[in-house]
Every structure is written in structure tokens, then in C-alpha cells.
């Protein structure tokens, strides 16, 4: 598995897209800091970008890589190797290289602008952790979709749709249901609903640090317990890991039955 991981990783490291992705984050980091010189504000802007963009890039990269390396994968499958190791290796290769682009791309400009001197270091660290989680989650989801669809166009379509659903439509439905069922106690529901969407979940994780004052504005014991203590942080991180583990587990299950 480690060998496959290495191959995938080097393959991606050599590919132009990783560099583009890295350069994009690098430029973004520098521009944000150069334009306003205010680390706090830069982090809020970054939050908006990370929770939308990392899932999108992760999804597209995942699907693209699967379809592009399909022939190579089939060649590998002919070798006396476990399927699991091949696909897990590929999966980890993509996720790690994307995460590396993200962390280096954003880390370098922020380091140069003295993030260690700033009190925002924890917010920034959390932002990177959340971004990495999102990479792992969305690559796994993309792999699931790609494995289930041998038709390339269909696979891409579903992948983009999934991203659109989780990034935008889900929140829309969520908001509408909150407004329709206004009369009912909704605090449990609203917390639960955020758990079922990794993008919402990562947003909440960062809001816990950035906008805790606003989140505590709502009267409700459940909210107070969730947001007012470390309970929220622990639960969110736990559910985030579940969001990685369950899709990966499903990849393995799918592999067992799949006829290549």
C-alpha cells in the first residue's frame, strides 16, 4: 500500500494541477494579507473560501484522478495485490498531496506575515485542520461516486451535483425547514442537521472560535451546552472523523463486489 501511495503521490506531485492548486493558495494568502494586513480579517475571508473551494477541488480531483488512472489501476489489479491496498494507496496519495498544497500554500504567506506573533494562530491552525479534513472527506466521497459509475460523464455530473448539494442546496433546505417549522423547538434539529453535512460541520467548527459571541445569542440549553463548552468542539471533530471513515469503509465494501 505504501508503494502505491508513493506512486500516486509522486504522480500527483509531478502533475501540473497540484502546482496550480498550490500556487492558487499561495497567491490567495499573499493577496489577502497584502491587501488588508489584518490577520483576523484574512482568516474570516479564508474561512469562506476554504469551506467552498476545498470540497470542490477535492471532489473534482478525486473523480478526475480515478478516471484518468483507470487503465493503470486495471493493470495493477492484474498483479497479485489486494484491491484494498491499491485503492487506499491512491486515495491517500490524492488526499495527502491536496492537503499538502493547502497547508503549504496558505502556511507560507501567513508564516511570513508573522502568524506566530499573532493571537490568531489557533484560529488559523483550526482552519488548516478543517481544510485538511474536507480534503479527505471529499476525495473519499468522489471515489465512492467514481467507483459506482463507470460512465465518466455521469460520474462527473454526480460529483459536481453532490458538491452543489452539500455546499448550497442543503443549507437552503435547512433554512426553509427552520422557517416552516418555526413553531417547534428546533435547537436539537438544527444541531443535528449540521452534523449531516461536512461543510456545515466545518463551518461550525471554525465559528466556534471566530463567532462564538453570536452563536451564544440564541436562548437554548442545548445550544449553550454545545457552543459554550468544549463539548461542541469534541463532538464536531469526532463527527468529522466519522465523515472520513464511513466513505472509506464504503469504498472497501464496494471494491469487494466490483467487477472491473
Amino acid at each position: 500500500m505504501f508503494k502505491i501511495l508513493k506512486y500516486s503521490f509522486y504522480d500527483l506531485m509531478r502533475s501540473r494541477w497540484s502546482y496550480v492548486y498550490f500556487a492558487f493558495y499561495l497567491a490567495l494568502g499573499f493577496v489577502l494579507l497584502f491587501l488588508n494586513n489584518d490577520v483576523d480579517k484574512a482568516i474570516i475571508t479564508l474561512l469562506n473560501i476554504i469551506i467552498v473551494l476545498t470540497p470542490l477541488i477535492g471532489t473534482i480531483f478525486g473523480v478526475m484522478y480515478y478516471y484518468n488512472s483507470k487503465e493503470f489501476t486495471e493493470l495493477l489489479l492484474a498483479q497479485p495485490m489486494k484491491r484494498n491496498t491499491i485503492f487506499l494507496g491512491q486515495y491517500l496519495g490524492i488526499s495527502i498531496s491536496l492537503t499538502l498544497s493547502l497547508i503549504l500554500g496558505l502556511g507560507i504567506p501567513f508564516l511570513l506575515y508573522g502568524i506566530f506573533m499573532s493571537s490568531a494562530i489557533f484560529d488559523f491552525g483550526l482552519l488548516l485542520v478543517v481544510g485538511s479534513f474536507l480534503n479527505f472527506i471529499f476525495v473519499a466521497l468522489a471515489y465512492n461516486i467514481a467507483l459506482s459509475n463507470s460512465n465518466k460523464i455521469k460520474g462527473f455530473g454526480y460529483a459536481i451535483l453532490m458538491w452543489l448539494f452539500l455546499a448550497v442546496i442543503y443549507d437552503g433546505l435547512f433554512l426553509i425547514s427552520l422557517m416552516v417549522f418555526n413553531e417547534y423547538p428546533l435547537d436539537n434539529f438544527s444541531l443535528l442537521a449540521t452534523m449531516f453535512n461536512p461543510i456545515d460541520l466545518s463551518r461550525i467548527l471554525i465559528l466556534l472560535k471566530l463567532d462564538i459571541s453570536a452563536l451564544l445569542g440564541y436562548t437554548g440549553a442545548v445550544f449553550k451546552k454545545f457552543f459554550g463548552t468544549n463539548f461542541g468542539l469534541v463532538i464536531s471533530l469526532f463527527v468529522m472523523s466519522l465523515w472520513v471513515l464511513i466513505p472509506v469503509w464504503r469504498i472497501q465494501r464496494k471494491l469487494r463486489k466490483k467487477d472491473f
Binding site: 422557517m179 461550525i204 463567532d211
Partner: peptide, 18 residues
């Protein structure tokens, strides 16, 4: 919206809200 349905504060800073 946050005034009418206070729970919707959990959607703060989401893309849909933007």
C-alpha cells in the same frame, strides 16, 4: 431571518446565506 428564527444562527457565514 435570524431575528425571526433564532436557530438559523447556525447557518452564519454559509455560502447559501451569502
Amino acid at each position: 431571518i435570524a431575528h425571526r428564527t433564532p436557530e438559523s444562527i447556525v447557518l452564519l457565514r454559509s455560502l447559501f446565506v451569502d
